[in-house]
Simulated assay, not measured.
Amino acid sequence: MSFKPEKIISGGQTGADTGGLIAGQRLGIATGGTAPQGYWTEAGERADFLKSFGLIELASGNLAERTRENIRNSDATLIFTDNPGSDGTSYTIKFCRELGKPFLVIDPWDDCCKQIRDFIGKNKPYILNVAGNRESNSQGITWRTAETIQRVFSG
C-alpha cells in the first residue's frame, strides 16, 4: 500500500486499542492517543506501558470522553469488533458521526485487509485512530488487530 498514516492513535485499552499501537511501532509509524485519567485499562493502571506508546492522560476517567478525544484528534477510525452492538463500539460510531469523521467497522476474524486498504486509500488519514473490543470481550483481538494492520501497511 502506498499511503501510510503518519501516526496511529488509540485510547490504550487492552485489545484492539493496544493491537493498533503495537502494529504502529512495528511498522515504524508514530503512536499516541489519549488514555483515561490514571492510564486506566481493564488490566488496571498501565502508565509506563501506555507512555511507551506516547499516550497522554485525560483529566477525566470517563471512557466516553477518552473515545471522543481520540476521534476528534484523528482523521479516520478503524473499529475492530466481533460485537458491533457493544457499548464501546456504539459510542465510537456515534462520536464519529457527530464529529463527521470517517470510520470502518470490521470483524477482525474476517479477511478484511482489502476492505481496510480501500478505506485508507479513499480517506488517506494522516492520523488513524484504532478502536474496538477489549481483550476480555474478544480473546486474541490484540494480536489479530496488530497482525491485520501490519499486513495492510506492509503489502
Rank of each mutant, 00 (worst) to 15 (best):
9 I>R: 00
127 I>L: 01
147 E>I: 01
122 K>S: 11
65 E>G: 04
137 N>V: 11
13 Q>G: 00
20 G>F: 00
124 K>W: 08
131 A>Q: 08
49 F>E: 14
41 T>Y: 01
134 R>H: 02
140 G>H: 02
153 F>W: 06
94 K>D: 13
66 R>D: 00
128 L>K: 00
94 K>W: 13
6 E>P: 05
4 K>E: 14
12 G>F: 09
31 T>G: 11
60 S>D: 01
26 R>W: 13
25 Q>R: 10
99 L>Q: 07
110 D>A: 09
153 F>S: 03
66 R>L: 00
53 F>C: 08
19 G>N: 05
75 D>I: 06
18 T>I: 12
148 T>Y: 03
138 S>R: 11
21 L>G: 09
68 R>L: 05
30 A>H: 12
6 E>M: 10
8 I>Q: 02
75 D>C: 06
110 D>N: 15
8 I>F: 00
77 T>A: 14
71 I>W: 00
139 Q>M: 13
73 N>L: 02
54 G>A: 05
15 G>H: 12
94 K>G: 07
41 T>Q: 05
23 A>S: 01
131 A>S: 11
59 A>H: 12
125 P>A: 09
88 G>L: 10
20 G>R: 01
68 R>H: 05
36 P>A: 00
135 E>R: 10
135 E>I: 14
80 F>P: 07
7 K>E: 03
127 I>H: 04
61 G>T: 01
52 S>C: 12
135 E>T: 02
88 G>I: 02
30 A>S: 08
67 T>W: 05
80 F>Y: 07
41 T>L: 05
153 F>H: 01
113 C>N: 15
152 V>H: 03
77 T>M: 04
136 S>M: 07
146 A>P: 08
104 L>N: 12
124 K>T: 13
26 R>M: 04
126 Y>N: 09
2 S>N: 13
42 E>A: 06
20 G>N: 03
128 L>A: 03
37 Q>T: 11
118 D>L: 14
151 R>N: 07
130 V>R: 01
32 G>Y: 05
81 T>E: 09
86 S>Y: 02
133 N>E: 11
151 R>W: 03
118 D>Q: 15
126 Y>D: 14
111 D>S: 15
123 N>T: 14
31 T>C: 09
35 A>L: 13
37 Q>D: 11
25 Q>W: 10
75 D>F: 04
114 K>M: 13
28 G>N: 06
136 S>P: 03
36 P>I: 00
147 E>R: 02
91 Y>L: 12
144 R>E: 04
92 T>L: 06
42 E>V: 00
142 T>Y: 04
22 I>T: 07
126 Y>I: 15
136 S>E: 06
59 A>F: 06
140 G>N: 06
4 K>S: 14
